[in-house]
Simulated assay, not measured.
Amino acid sequence: MLGALGVLLAFGVCEAVSRAGIVRRSYLPPASEVLRRAVELAGDRTFLEGVGATLHAWALGLGLAVALAVPLGLLLGSVPVVDAAVRAIVEFLRPLPSVALIPLVSLLLGSGTETKVALVTYASVWPILFNTVYGLGETDPLAKDTLRAFGFGRLAVLLRVELPGTAPFIAAGIRISAAVALILAVATEILSGFGEGLGIFIAQSGLATNGTRDVLAGVVWAGALGLVINGVLVWGERRLFPWTSGERGVGVGT
């Protein structure tokens, strides 16, 4: 209820500011017009195909990030020697802004889905990787010692205790990375200026005369997609791990 109230309040403020002429309509159209345009876009086949292209790159990049980050995180968290050997490389790569790599990746991979997927994967790896490592560190040591006392090896301890105990942290990392992945998918399209997708629609609308309404309508779509994705993942976390708060996670910038 409070969330809905906050949305209505923000909607009303934007509507009033524009209608009162405090800000020119060419800069800030009334919120009702933006919302109406966003609803109209739901019937535009070309626009929906662009949204589908963005979601396709998002899903591929996030899936690759999970496939890479979870095994690597388990390895780094389980084998201190490996962690020490690659720590400098990880700490060097992690702070690099993903959007700054767009020109380089575009030159290497060209235009199209490959560039978006590569950048989305790169940005999405870090929250999952560090959440996995952190989750391993939080595993109950008594449970691990008990299995070792009964003769279980390292792999058995990993599969029976460490991986189940780390799963909520991995899920939280995936939820964080899902938002990061959507940001990178749209931002790559906007900054690269080629291909198709929601970001391309926003970029092209920004170049059009009186295109602010379409730009904001595209932003509404991006925000709605992020809201839906996060809601689905939070619901999944609560269903799979009801004993957790659903707010665990180590945030990593893009």
Rank of each mutant, 00 (worst) to 15 (best):
G6L: 14
V7T: 13
V7R: 03
A10S: 12
V13F: 11
V13C: 02
E15D: 06
R24W: 13
R25A: 14
P29Q: 01
E33T: 04
V34Y: 07
F47T: 08
T54Q: 05
L55I: 12
H56E: 15
G61M: 05
V70H: 03
P71D: 06
G73S: 09
L74D: 10
G77Q: 08
S78Y: 15
P80G: 04
P80L: 09
V81W: 15
A84N: 14
A85L: 15
E91I: 09
F92S: 03
R94S: 07
L101G: 05
L119G: 03
Y122S: 00
W126G: 00
V133T: 09
L136A: 04
T139W: 06
T139N: 01
L142V: 12
L142Q: 13
L155W: 15
E162R: 14
L163N: 03
G165W: 11
T166M: 05
P168Q: 07
F169I: 01
A181N: 03
L182N: 09
L184K: 00
V186A: 00
T188R: 01
I190L: 04
G195A: 01
L198D: 01
L198W: 09
F201C: 00
I202H: 09
Q204F: 13
G218I: 14
V219F: 11
W221Q: 01
W221H: 08
A222T: 15
G223A: 11
L225D: 03
L227K: 09
V228H: 06
I229M: 04
W235K: 08
R239P: 07
P242V: 10
